[in-house]
Each structure stands twice: as structure tokens, then as C-alpha cells.
């Protein structure tokens, strides 16, 4: 029902804009804005959802975490801000679920201060309620944020304690059992950076993954995803790109671990509005071009 109403409203609106454009009348930019907002709002209200299947670039990250032996050491770096969060936060939460489900050791850190505040939300809304048995300092820990962008990575790849004498709560790293056999990031089994700006996945590849020869995976905001493809598959074992990448990972997680089906999977939910909005953008490009070619033809005739 929701889909039908959405199609009628969106289709009707597009036809009207097409009519105005063909007639050569100017469509106010605010009408375009209103139309985009309405499209997204309708898709959210009617909860339009579609299924997802993991593509190879996403599946390879999932398989890597899946196939690591229990107790493997994985770094998850929150390198993003609230502006990227709707796209990349679902990836981060999916990684937390998967990593802890597989009983790996999870080391959080951030190259963006805002990442720490968003991590705090993830810890309270996902990690603590869904994994009440996970112990701080044994199963997971939060190293915190350090200023200095790639400079931070340049130090931690050879000497973790020099940059992080203590974790985000002021505990000495030597007092936490999960740091017993960790001197630097070279001792990790997998590095995952989730970001979309600078510093982000690219800096992790350049300053940690490549020089340390450690397996590296990334989750990236859609805007910077195409830029990272040259690193795949040799320098990056896999990459989650934007909401679509996050949705694919969530789908794979649910397929493998059905117990997560009832948990919040925001990326899968976002793909409905995303699809509708893409249709509208495509329609705008087509309508704009129809109007352009008509006016050009008229110009040639006159």
C-alpha cells in the first residue's frame, strides 16, 4: 500500500515537473527541494525495504573476520563525524556485533575526536546491551582519540605505548590483559578504519596497513568510496562503501547469525528511501535533458 501511494505521489509530481519543463516554464528550486524531501519522507514513513546480497568487496571483509581464529586482535577505528554517521555508523555497529560474536579481541580508537563521542553511543546502544558478558580490558577496550592525523599512525605502527600510554579512561595499557602481547599495531590480525574524510581509510593504508604489512579493511562514506578502489584487493582486503555497503554487511550478518534479525539494522532500512531518491534524481536528469534538447531544437529551428 505504502509503495503504491509513494509511486502515485512521486510519479504525479515528476509528470508535473516534466510538463512544466517541456513547456519551457521555470521550476522553482524550492519545488525541487520539497519534492526530494517528500520522496524520502514517504519512503521512511511507509518503511519501504528491499533485500540485499553481499558483493565480493564486502563479502571478503565478512569472510576475513569470520575465518580468523577466536581471540584474534582487531582494531576498529572510528574516524568519522555525525555528518557521515548515518552511512558509516551502521557498519561500525555491524562490525562490533560480528567481531564480538566471533570472540575476537576488539581495540577501539579514533583519529577524529567526534569518533569518540559516536563510539560512546555505540558502546551504550550495541556493545553493552547485546554483549553483557564482554569484559572491558579483556574482550574490548577504548584507546581513545589522539590529535595528529597520520602522525598518530606513524607512531602506533611501531610503538603503541608511546602514543597511547593509557586508554581513554586513564588506565595504563599494561594493566589491561588484552595488551599483554601487543607492542604495536603490527601485532594486530586486522585493522579496520571507518571513515570518509582525512584522516580515514586512505591514511590507514598508507601509514599502517602497508608499512606494517597488516591486513587492512575499510568502511567508507559513499563520497570517498570510489577513490579507494585502487587499493583493493592487494592493499585493502575489502571495503564497505556507503549505506549500500553497510546494508550488504548487515544482510550477510543476519544470514549467518539469525539472532541479530531482531536487532536494529539501520542500513537495510535506509535502502528503501535511498532507492526512491535515486529514482527521483535519475528522473530529474532525464527531465532536465529532455527540456534541454527541446529548447536546443527550437533554437535551431528559429
Amino acid at each position: 500500500m505504502g509503495l503504491i501511494i509513494s509511486i502515485i505521489v512521486i510519479g504525479g509530481g515528476l509528470l508535473w515537473i516534466l510538463y512544466l519543463s517541456i513547456k519551457g516554464r521555470d521550476v522553482d528550486r524550492r519545488i525541487v527541494y520539497l519534492f526530494v524531501g517528500t520522496t524520502v519522507a514517504l519512503a521512511i514513513i511507509f518503511r519501504l525495504e528491499f533485500g540485499e546480497v553481499a558483493t565480493p568487496i564486502v563479502k571478503s571483509v565478512f569472510d576475513k573476520i569470520e575465518n580468523l581464529p577466536a581471540g584474534s586482535k582487531i582494531v576498529l577505528s572510528y574516524d568519522f563525524d555525525p555528518a557521515m554517521a548515518p552511512e558509516v555508523n551502521p557498519m561500525a555497529n555491524a562490525f562490533i556485533r560480528h567481531i564480538l560474536e566471533k570472540k575476537h579481541r576488539l581495540y577501539f580508537m579514533s583519529l577524529w575526536a567526534t569518533g569518540q563521542s559516536l563510539l560512546s553511543v555505540s558502546l551504550d546502544s550495541v556493545l553493552k546491551p547485546e554483549f553483557p558478558d564482554a569484559k572491558y580490558g579483556v574482550d574490548y577496550c577504548n584507546l581513545g582519540f589522539k590529535a595528529g592525523n597520520e602522525g598518530v599512525l606513524n607512531v602506533v605502527i611501531t610503538n603503541l605505548r608511546k602514543m597511547f600510554p593509557s586508554d581513554a579512561n586513564g588506565n595504563s595499557l599494561d594493566s589491561l590483559p588484552m595488551f599483554k602481547d601487543v607492542e604495536s599495531l603490527k601485532d594486530m590480525d586486522l585493522l579496520i578504519s571507518i571513515g570518509g574524510g582525512k584522516p580515514g581509510v586512505k591514511e590507514w593504508v598508507l601509514f599502517a596497513g602497508d608499512p606494517g604489512k597488516v591486513a587492512m579493511a575499510g568502511g567508507s562514506a559513499a563520497v570517498s568510496t570510489p577513490l579507494l578502489y585502487p587499493y583493493w584487493p592487494k592493499q585493502l582486503i575489502g571495503l564497505l562503501g556507503g549505506t549500500k555497503g553497510a546494508a550488504e554487511y548487515e544482510a550477510e550478518l543476519i544470514k549467518r547469525y539469525p539472532r541479530f534479525k531482531d536487532k536494529s539494522m539501520p542500513a537495510l532500512r535506509m535502502m528503501g528511501p535511498q532507492t526512491m531518491a535515486h529514482v527521483v534524481i535519475i528522473a530529474f536528469i532525464v527531465i532536465g535533458n529532455i527540456a534541454y534538447f527541446r529548447s536546443r531544437k527550437k533554437g535551431e529551428q528559429s
Partner: peptide, 10 residues
């Protein structure tokens, strides 16, 4: 486009 729409959805 994908990224910007995601932010609006958020």
C-alpha cells in the same frame, strides 16, 4: 548522490 541522500534519510 548516494552519500548525500543517506544523510538526509538520517
Amino acid at each position: 548522490v548516494m552519500g548525500r541522500i543517506s544523510l538526509l534519510v538520517g
